[in-house]
Design a binder for these strands. Structure first.
Lengths: 189, 189
DNA sequence: CGCGACGTTGATTTGCCTCAACGATTGTGG
DNA sequence: CCACAATCGTTGAGGCAAATCAACGTCGCG
């Protein structure tokens, strides 16, 4: 549990309260954490391994929204933070054997209220996610496929080994064929 | 001031504290709230009018990140929420005469700490923005230009009169020519 | 009125997709 | 541990959506 709130110092009491809200779980490759239609009420913290969040559009194509690796949180945020439904719209698939901590959002909100340090960390995380989303949107608007791929590799330096080629393609919004050609171009020149 | 924290009830004391952190300002069409390189330390609440946030890429093209209308907050969030710099990377331009409230982020953080209701509203706003960003990213990945335009018109029903055609195009990530053709197609049926 | 900003239209080009086939790699059961 | 199947990545040919380049109508404003 210690590395979840890395850098924060807690009292005995706070520590217990936090531990009481967390639940360990582990997942193997190809297992699903969440599937569309399921009720979503938890955050998940990745201790190790790798998960990806994706949706399938009406034409059957997959679109990857997020890869989550060690030290990241994941969930179906559209459901969890959305105004209306709490039913998932996404798949969250384990793509590398993973150890997770689960926290109910309601419990987490309690923690934020009772332990201001945690609340402030949450705000800070949300704010930097906010900035990161804007950067990603801009990147999608500004850069052609090749440059987006380069940016991706820089943003996730060690992820290539865990992730299939077509996962990356669906994150970048291109086909596996295009990604393949892009890689060839890059290694060529 | 009353409509900024719509729905929240405050004590006399809280109300004064809030009012003390706010500063009114007004902006005319074509004036700029922020330009690249400036230090960013404020949020802006739009009382009336319309602003747009955009960047110019190395090739000279504009990319619109956000339109902000009555009831929205705006700022250069990449700078304000980013981990490193506080220097703006974006332009925020007034595209329809506007009345704004300005709040320093540091003052706002204080308010959040001292008036829990405000803090909770902030978290709630950040969380729903989080979900909204994910939806926008997905929309960009999944939908072709025409469908994105339709979605845009639904999301901002009354904005067409304030914004130029090429503003919308640069928000959707297409050219003005393409947008023009899309509109023709739609009006044709 | 005349100029500049904006929107539209047409012709051509291009980046990426689709479809199809074929290597390479991984995983599995005998 | 090998053989085979399934999954995944690569390559090529052709097509399409949107970009680019260029010209022209239109509207609003000084």
């Amino acid at each position: 549990m210690n590395d979840i709130f890395r850098g924060l110092a807690f009292t005995e009491d706070e520590r217990n309260r936090i531990a009481g809200s967390l639940q360990k779980l582990s997942l193997e490759r190809k297992e699903y954490l969440i599937k569309p239609g399921e009720i979503v009420q938890n955050f998940y913290y990745i201790q190790s391994g790798c998960l990806r969040t994706y949706l399938i559009d009406p034409t059957g194509k997959e679109h990857t929204l997020q890869f989550a690796v060690r030290g990241w949180w994941t969930s179906d945020y559209i459901a969890l933070f959305g105004k209306v439904n709490t039913k998932s719209v996404a798949y969250i698939e384990c793509i590398q054997d993973a150890a997770l901590y689960k926290v109910a959002k309601s419990d987490f909100d309690d923690l934020c209220r009772k332990i201001p340090k945690v609340g402030r960390l949450h705000v800070q995380n949300l704010e930097s996610a906010f900035a990161a989303f804007q950067r990603r949107i801009l990147e999608n608007l500004m850069l052609p496929a090749k440059a987006r791929y380069v940016a991706f590799v820089q943003a996730y330096p060690n992820i290539e080994q865990s992730v299939k080629n077509y996962h990356i393609a669906s994150y970048l919004g291109i086909t596996t064929e295009s990604l393949s050609r892009i890689r060839r171009e890059i290694s060529a020149g």
